[in-house]
């Protein structure tokens, strides 16, 4: 087998992730300083219309519903956007992959990191919103970043899986779009978990996004702790999906320069 003594150091890999993520971020919001506002418009528009439908028309009476909904949509939007961009993380950089060797996993990580920058800006908007609606922040919010890290690795795992499968299957992104739509309604984002009958909750929690979004919300808004069992399940599910992603990616990445 080929043996290259020019293995990439961790420092150089991190440097590549940084430069790819920054240019990715620039490209996404390119053209105007309003570029970032446009990206914020999508979750805000969805939030407004869902809020009107469920809070005003259907008169759901849920404490802090607007904050629940906004945080849920921001987190979901991060998940949905970064995984759908992640599908083509390699294909979008085929101009580089065909010319220079670098560890190809770096391209997928960079895509997720650039989406993370967008999430941090959106969370800033959420906290301004929460402050304006007079929500007292409890100290449990400092545990929320743990679940954000899990969310990041879930996204990375799914992006690795999908970008690997995209090499032999070019319609994987359409399939993923359909799955995303189903998952959106199978995650308690629009409706509170308390509306779901007991016997169905277990099935909802099989979807790791349910735990992640629910736990971040109760830590941030209610000031209560998630259950240990639930946390453990989410952790294990994320680890499994991440490892599955790594496995699939490593099977297909070496043919990427020839097939893309």
């Amino acid at each position: 087998m080929a043996l290259y003594k020019t293995d990439f150091s961790l420092r150089q890999s991190l440097e590549i992730i940084r430069v790819l993520a920054v240019t990715d971020f620039k490209l996404r919001y390119y053209g105007s300083y309003l570029g970032y506002l446009w990206s914020l418009l999508k979750p805000l528009a969805l939030f407004s219309v869902l809020y009107i439908v469920f809070s005003v028309f259907m008169r759901w009476d849920v404490a802090n519903y607007q904050l629940y909904l906004l945080l849920g949509i921001i987190l979901w939007n991060f998940f949905a956007e970064s995984t759908s961009v992640g599908v083509t993380a390699l294909a979008a950089r085929s101009h580089l992959i065909k010319k220079v060797y670098f560890p190809r996993i770096v391209a997928v990580i960079a895509t997720a990191v650039s989406a993370l920058l967008g999430l941090l800006l959106n969370l800033l908007v959420f906290f301004v919103f929460a402050f304006l609606s007079g929500l007292p922040l409890s100290s449990t919010v400092f545990l929320a970043p743990f679940f954000l890290v899990l969310l990041f690795f879930l996204i990375l795992g799914i992006s690795l899986l999908l970008s690997g499968l995209y090499i032999p299957f070019r319609d994987i992104n359409q399939i993923w779009e359909v799955l995303l739509q189903l998952l959106f309604w199978l995650t308690p984002i629009v409706y509170p978990l308390s509306f779901v009958p007991e016997q169905y909750r277990f099935w909802l929690f099989l979807n790791p996004m349910t735990g992640i979004i629910q736990y971040i919300r109760i830590l941030t808004i209610d000031g209560t702790f998630p259950s240990l069992m639930g946390t453990l399940y989410v952790f294990c599910a994320v680890v499994c999906i991440f490892l599955a992603g790594l496995f699939v990616f490593s099977r297909f990445e070496s043919v990427a320069p020839e097939q893309l």
């Binding site: 087998m1 043996l3 290259y4 003594k5 020019t6 992959i97 010319k99 060797y101 320069p257 020839e258």
Partner: peptide
């Protein structure tokens, strides 16, 4: 350059940055 993968059985050694 490390971009294409050779068929199994080949031995390629390179020393230094390319």
């Amino acid at each position: 350059a490390g971009i294409y993968r050779p068929d199994p059985g080949a031995r390629i050694e390179l020393e230094g940055r390319i």
